[in-house]
Computed example of a mutant assay.
Amino acid sequence: ISSHVHYSGTREDRSSRVVETIEFTTDRGQTVRANPVVSDTGTVDRSGMSVTVLHDRDRPERFIAPQNGHGISARVPVMRIGFGLLFLVVIGIIVNGGRMILGQLPFF
């Protein structure tokens, strides 16, 4: 593995992520050197390390190299969805509570 940091966004709102280039040989003897389709490593630099690669047998250039070696973790997307739903519920409660309060005032 080799890796580099990729920066994106504007100077005020800048984010970074580690982009890995991985080289492996398939069970059919084909050498592949590419970037994983999806990465769950965040900012972990795994340069020079050996990692487990899961690839499509017919299209080996489409692969993942999960941090845990078993599969891409769904924890982060599930947490984002959960926080988004929680945010919507809280906003709904605030809006509904505001309507109830305004409904009880004599001039509304």
Rank of each mutant, 00 (worst) to 15 (best):
I22D: 01
V18Q: 00
S39D: 03
V32W: 00
G29E: 10
E20C: 03
V37C: 08
P36A: 03
S39F: 00
S39H: 08
V19W: 05
F24G: 01
E23M: 13
V32C: 00
D40N: 14
S39C: 08
V37D: 08
S47Y: 07
T25A: 05
S16Y: 08
T31F: 07
P36Q: 01
V38G: 00
A34K: 11
T25M: 11
E23A: 13
D45N: 12
G29D: 07
V38A: 10
P36N: 02
T41K: 13
R28C: 06
A34C: 05
S47H: 10
E23L: 07
G42F: 01
T41H: 12
Q30D: 14
R46F: 06
V18W: 01
V19R: 11
R33S: 09
T41I: 13
S39T: 10
D27G: 11
S47L: 07
V37W: 09
T43E: 10
T41F: 05
V37H: 11
D40F: 02
V32A: 02
R28F: 10
T31G: 09
Q30V: 14
N35V: 13
D27M: 07
E20Q: 11
D27F: 04
Q30L: 15
T25P: 09
V37L: 14
V44Q: 11
V38P: 02
V37Q: 13
E23Y: 06
E20P: 03
T21Y: 05
R33Q: 06
V18Y: 05
R17T: 15
R28W: 09
R46D: 02
V38E: 08
T41V: 14
S39N: 09
S16T: 09
D40L: 06
T26N: 06
E23R: 15
N35R: 14
V19P: 01
G29S: 14
R33K: 09
I22T: 05
T31I: 10
T21G: 02
F24E: 04
Q30M: 12
T25D: 02
D45G: 02
T43G: 06
S39Q: 07
V18F: 03
G29V: 09
E20V: 01
P36D: 01
R33L: 01
S47I: 08
S16L: 12
V19H: 06
V19I: 15
T26L: 02
V19G: 02
T43H: 12
R33N: 08
T25Q: 13
Q30T: 15
S39P: 00
G42P: 00
S39I: 04
N35L: 05
R33F: 04
R46S: 03
R17N: 14
R28D: 15
F24K: 05
V37G: 05
T41D: 12
E20F: 10
R46A: 03
D40A: 06
R46W: 03
